[in-house]
Design a protein around this nucleic acid. Structure first.
Lengths: 246, 246
DNA sequence: AGTCTGCATTGATCAAAATCAATTTGCGGC
DNA sequence: GCCGCAAATTGATTTTGATCAATGCAGACT
């Protein structure tokens, strides 16, 4: 029992995946947690650093504990795009077959992740219905989110995309959906790569939202939402008046 | 036993979901199939028709039997975008919460779908490990595919997107990955809405691929791949020489 | 305090794709 | 085989955002 307590203390005590009731490790019995923890590797990743390839290769299930991780694809001529963002609680399953390159995970903020072995993860999903429910529901959210993101990239203007991005940040940040102040979390160039824009366009776009009095920029990475309803409208693709005419 | 045989005969006999070993209903015992079939509604949908909203509302799990279904979002000023494509064997789980509009399913070719009740679908995923494996692996593919699609939309040129689209069609069509002739399946304007382009640009882009001798257009909807390697390169984002210079 | 260094912003061009407006082309029905 | 029509193509023009090139700024380090 001391061993068990110690085993948990070692890695998992205080880990958000365990302490937040909605997340995967909170669904586990003590025994399951100990078992899982012996096949998991928690790691800190500095901003801009890729997640260790060897680690991913051995344990291709990555749970995000803290920070933001991007799934990055680099085209052969250097164009970079970030196909998806993963936030606290998300589970990234990197197993894949097929002809297209899988892309690689990079930290877009200082981050903490925990990589799990496929065997223990699959076992959990098989045997623990609560863990399974969390895992499946996270997958479903990822699918729905990806669809929304495709709509953003497919047909929206730069300001619309940025409005959508601000809401994504708000939804995923600790305070949740009712904060007035939103932390953009990523650098301009990462926002650009994620939203299919150039950094300059991100900059101008945020300025434009400010000019329309939908937001106020507070320093480099914080935004105060001034008119949440109008910003939401814009994010959802309502054309949006070209600002208050004189 | 006659009843059982009849019950299967009624709806599920000859259904691809049952006859194709890789698909969900092929994983079920006779009893499970009968049970599921009593909570499922197979439907044909004509091209351009939305999937009946009431049907989706009652049974929000949609399995694609045949044809192509698109998840369509229409912005308030009429811009249309198709966030995802679903092909034979795909399972669409439309349950979702959250602020963004869910989008609606429309048939992009004449299609056949089967809508399942959440209860019986969840029961299946809970109790039948093989069915669960099929369902989860389909979700994982959808996630990976969506990521690839985001890369296409985020940073690729029109010809690159079209090359990627041709490969998507090839991968999902019955013949599979080694066909020379690919059926584009969708109309130009649907391709446009899916790939984040305008129909005119799709037309010009396909012409461009033909000019570069990567493909040959065979009628309106069929394409012969002339140089699969180079086309793949282009799809993957290698700049691509501006055609054979004189 | 002073410099260094990465980011962010700004401004001036440029190019790709969108838009607008006709035609043209196939294809299903007679 | 010939209509009729939706879909596809073509061409001219405009727009948006990318690109290129500085400049500005704030925090880290000495």
């Amino acid at each position: 029992m001391d061993n068990m307590a110690l085993a948990i203390a070692d890695k998992c005590r205080n880990c958000a995946l365990r302490t937040d009731d909605a997340l995967i490790c909170a669904q586990l019995s003590t025994g399951e947690l100990i078992e899982l923890s012996s096949h998991s590797t928690p790691t800190n990743v500095d901003r801009k650093q890729p997640v260790n390839a060897r680690l991913v290769d051995r344990n291709p299930i990555i749970a995000i504990v803290e920070g933001v991780i991007g799934l990055q694809h680099v085209l052969k001529d250097g164009r970079r795009s970030i196909a998806a963002l993963f936030w606290r609680g998300d589970i990234v399953d990197l197993r894949r077959d097929g002809e297209r390159a899988p892309g690689n995970l990079v930290a877009l903020t200082p981050a903490r992740i925990c990589s799990l072995s496929v065997e223990s993860y699959d076992k959990l999903v098989r045997d623990n219905p609560d863990a399974r429910a969390v895992a499946i529901s996270n997958m479903r959210e990822q699918i729905h989110f990806a669809a929304d993101h495709s709509v953003d990239l497919g047909k929206k203007s730069a300001p619309e995309r940025l409005a959508a991005f601000i809401f994504e940040c708000r939804r995923r940040q600790l305070g949740g959906d009712d904060c007035q102040i939103v932390d953009l979390a990523l650098r301009r160039s990462d926002i650009a790569d994620y939203m299919g824009l150039q950094p300059e366009t991100v900059s101008r776009g945020l300025k434009e939202l400010e000019r329309r009095e939908l937001i106020a920029l507070k320093g480099r990475s914080k935004v105060r939402i001034l008119d949440a309803a109008a910003l939401r409208q814009l994010a959802n693709g309502t054309p949006g008046k070209p600002a208050t005419p004189a």
